[in-house]
Design a protein around this nucleic acid. Structure first.
Lengths: 333, 333
DNA sequence: AAAATTAAGTTAAGCGCTTAACCTAATTTT
DNA sequence: AAAATTAGGTTAAGCGCTTAACTTAATTTT
């Protein structure tokens, strides 16, 4: 049924070694032989079994992409770019959503390792480094995305979350906001943004809010709840919110509507990611843009280099940009 | 470095056949031997190489999911459900976006076939059946999602697009709309919805619009352009639009804003999918809901059955539901 | 013309696993 | 007590490929 290298060899009247060499363009093969083999291959529609070649130490041409949640548009957009970029190298990507759950991270890593993926792009939390260590022990290349790992020997592609947090907050402060709340989640990137936020506040003599208020998850629902909770708990109500991703921002905007607060008249909101949501919500969201396409491009490129033997480790930090839309009011006017 | 079955066998003082049997729970193995082997496995942290077992005819525990565009929230949400469901069977999924381009469909199918995936979930257009035939020739199970294929021996999971189109249109007609336009794309599901739309119109003595107006793609931009074009071209302006997915609907709403038309006061819009967008846009979108979770569950379940030897072919048709939100005005009130 | 080189293949081992077929000692049956 | 069965393994072939080592014939060098 399925034609294998022996069938081709027989039909072309050569040894399987010759066929293999034709396919891989290795060794010395005469022109007529090469043509004959190629003709037979075409005729029989022979496709080498990639498992078998992988067993012999060749690449599987598959990368594992482990992310928190594929249904989050920031990540699905990123995944799409990564997929396209990988495809340009003839690579496929198997995608695994972890919901930031350590057990899932470890399980997926294990599984993909067994499947001999050629490399990993990791965009999940990986607060626990065990899984990463495991990959490294196998000498499989890794590119870490959307988080940092000071001191670790890893390829990193990320933005400067601290700086982005600082700038987002400064942006609000410059527009006259003094009571600024932040809705973040307890993950690396958000903690960095929080740090940036807190420093920006203090640098302007303002008081940052306490990190007890970390949101449980980064969903619309949690953004909704968090804003309500903060508006409820805080004696002096914030005039602005820094939402650490666009989903949270979207939820926060919804919450304002529920509370009969106008955005941006009563409450200003700045988001993060510049996923498609930012353009969709009403009012459209002022947000910190992450260059998803560049992140994807760089990450895949880095991974390919590593897969092809480059043993250096690079850290690529990409620029963020505040996209001004309609959710921030300038109080100084 | 990487521990293999020989290492385990040696350490446990048994043959590799015994180790294999312990792992696969086949054959006869004494209790002490089994324990000893299991202990060694644990101690050496041995994980069987799945490529090698796949070569011997075992499953790869990987399914290919070919879809049009992972960045489209309907599909990314679907993908997430499929991924989760597959994961519950210990399966991974490699995701491929085709943009409805036949060449990409064929290329991905070929590639995944070479990688010995155990099954396919196909949600791309596959207007050209060659790729599907290829899979069938290899005897690899397929579940077709979001389209139909009358006469073909395939597992199908879908909604009744004709009926959904009919009902969406009737919904508008019942609310007094007479000039109803449709923004669809030239793909199977949309053509069916179009048919339903046209029949509903005629059944009520109304004139359906011409199918020349198929949108090029199903993106926000295309929804935007299509609405503008229709409003521009048609002598009697429609009072309602049936957008064949939520992205198009979103674009259409944007276009209305640009044209200074109020939704739903001047223009009513009904979408399709009930992806997260429907809740986000302003005004929130009345739309035909597809049961993504059920689609995913059924599709994976069907595929697993097929992978495990079930040779029957099922067609599962799931219910759609019109979710009433804010974009349709009742003209009869 | 003999020696050396090169071109174009072939042979065979092995990647890490599964499994049918086989073996041996212990137990059961008659 | 001999024959039959069973329990608990082992042996070895083979999945489809790659590749180092080898062979042979043709070409080049000296």
């Amino acid at each position: 049924m399925k034609v294998n290298i022996y069938d081709v060899a027989k039909a072309a009247n050569v040894s399987i070694a010759t066929v293999s060499k034709v396919i891989n363009n290795t060794g010395r093969i005469g022109d007529k032989t090469r043509k004959k083999v190629n003709d037979v291959i075409k005729e029989l529609d022979y496709k080498p079994n990639l498992m078998a070649s992988a067993l012999m130490g060749k690449k599987t041409c598959t990368i594992g992409f482990i992310l928190p949640d594929l249904a989050n548009p920031f990540f699905s957009e990123l995944a799409r770019y990564i997929e396209d970029m990988a495809s340009s190298f003839n690579y496929n990507v198997v995608i695994c959503s972890t919901d930031y759950i350590t057990e899932k991270e470890e399980m997926y890593v294990s599984l993909l390792l067994q499947k001999n993926v050629d490399g990993f792009i990791l965009a999940s939390g990986f607060e626990n480094f065990d899984a990463i260590k495991k990959i490294q022990a196998m000498n499989i290349p890794i590119v870490l995305v959307a988080r940092n790992a000071p001191g670790e020997k890893l390829n990193l592609v990320s933005i400067n979350d601290y700086d982005a947090g600082f700038r987002a907050t400064s942006y609000l402060i410059e527009r006259g906001h003094q009571h600024i709340a932040i809705i973040a989640r307890n993950i690396w990137s958000n903690r960095e943004r929080f740090r940036g936020y807190a420093d920006a506040m203090r640098a302007n003599g303002l008081i940052p809010m306490d990190e007890h208020y970390y949101a449980k998850e980064s969903t619309i629902q949690d953004g909704f709840k968090s804003l309500q909770q903060i508006m409820n708990d805080f004696p002096t109500k914030p005039t602005a919110f820094f939402a650490c991703n666009d989903l949270i921002a979207t939820g926060a905007i919804k919450a304002c509507k529920t509370l009969n607060l106008s955005v941006p008249e009563d409450i200003s909101i700045i988001g993060f990611d510049n996923s498609i949501f930012a353009q969709i919500v009403e009012p459209s969201l002022t947000t910190v843009a992450q260059p998803q396409r560049d992140i994807a491009t760089e990450a895949v490129q880095l991974l390919m280099n590593a897969i092809n033997g480059d043993t250096t480790h690079q850290t690529i930090t990409l620029k963020t940009e505040i996209i001004e839309r309609e959710t921030v009011k300038n109080l100084t006017l």
